[in-house]
Design a protein around this nucleic acid. Structure first.
Length: 291
DNA sequence: ATCTGTCCCTGGACGC
DNA sequence: TGCGTCCAGGGACAGA
């Protein structure tokens, strides 16, 4: 489940694999709602172009092309952007894994979930966008064109001042966890890091947003920031599908305090971690540390 | 304006 | 072994 840290790790490691390489061909799967821009249009727009910069806004990646167009990418739940040179058993299906001999070179072959294959004039490694559940998105933006999804985004979670969160929580009856997940409030936070930050700030996910004090908002934003930065440092969380563009797994999952630890003892006070559902999304918290 | 529920999708886990 | 059922969740959308 790629959130800000996974997207940022992807950005950092993908940029050098993409930059200033002229696109020679683009193979795609058939049209689906994954493609906000139809595959044929995408192909026309990308052929012969090269990417000159890769930036991130919330969970979106924006690749700037040498003709001023921009490619907007979202990893959704199971999206993976990686190089052909990436070797990771995570990229293999279960059957491929079981038949793999130890001495065999791990090698990914584009499959039905590999929606975009980019090859380059330099003949070097291809770059793939794979997404099993197709919750990801790709759209080609004309020069100067934006997308409502981007326009709606709030301040990036790494840059938003606590005061911004505090103001947005006023008069909001919804649970604070729901506000954290709302990309128009703070951009980039998903289920894992919302739970982690709430734990570190000692705030229960179900707490009404309007009941948070300015101090709580400051503690929450500070926790969020430290959790996100730490995760980027450790290469993100490889809990389900995430791999970095170079094939590396992230290590942040080993540092989790509460996420997906229901029933296990709180690492601070030993109280069993509880799990609850908020707006169809699971939340994990320590009933003792988080009031 | 705000909030909640439904839907998109697929693979893996689980029970029988 | 195999089948059915449930679950994971980011975000768009509809309706309350």
């Amino acid at each position: 489940m790629p959130e800000l840290p996974e997207v940022e790790v992807t950005r950092r490691r993908l940029e050098p694999l993409l930059i200033r390489r002229q696109i020679a061909s683009l193979r795609t799967t058939g049209d689906s709602y994954f493609f906000l821009t139809k595959p044929a249009t995408l192909r026309r727009g990308l052929l012969g172009r090269s990417i000159v910069g890769l930036s991130r806004r919330g969970k979106y990646l924006l690749a700037e092309l040498d003709d001023g167009k921009r490619l907007m990418l979202h990893l959704g739940m199971t999206g993976q952007l990686f190089s052909q040179s990436a070797t990771s058993v995570r990229l293999l299906s279960a059957s491929q894994r079981s038949s793999l001999r130890p001495e065999e070179q791990l090698r990914f072959e584009p499959d039905k979930h590999t929606h975009i294959c980019l090859s380059f004039e330099d003949g070097g490694p291809e770059v793939y966008f794979r997404d099993v559940r197709k919750f990801g998105k790709v759209r080609l933006l004309r020069r100067g064109q934006s997308d409502p999804r981007l326009d709606r985004l709030g301040l990036d979670a790494l840059e938003a001042p606590a005061e911004a969160l505090f103001q947005r929580t006023r008069k909001r009856k919804a649970a604070i966890k729901n506000l954290l997940l709302d990309q128009s409030v703070i951009a980039g936070v998903g289920n894992i890091y919302a739970d982690e930050a709430l734990f570190l700030a000692g705030v229960r996910p179900t707490r009404h947003a309007s009941r948070l004090t300015r101090n709580s908002c400051e503690a929450l934003m500070a926790s969020l920031r430290s959790v996100l930065l730490r995760s980027i440092e450790t290469g993100g969380s490889s809990i389900s599908d995430f791999i970095a563009p170079d094939g590396a797994d992230g290590d942040y999952q080993d540092e989790r305090w509460v996420y997906a630890r229901a029933g296990k003892p709180c690492l601070r006070c030993k109280t069993p971690i509880r799990r609850t559902t908020l707006s169809q999304r699971t939340s994990h918290f320590c009933p003792r540390c988080q009031r």
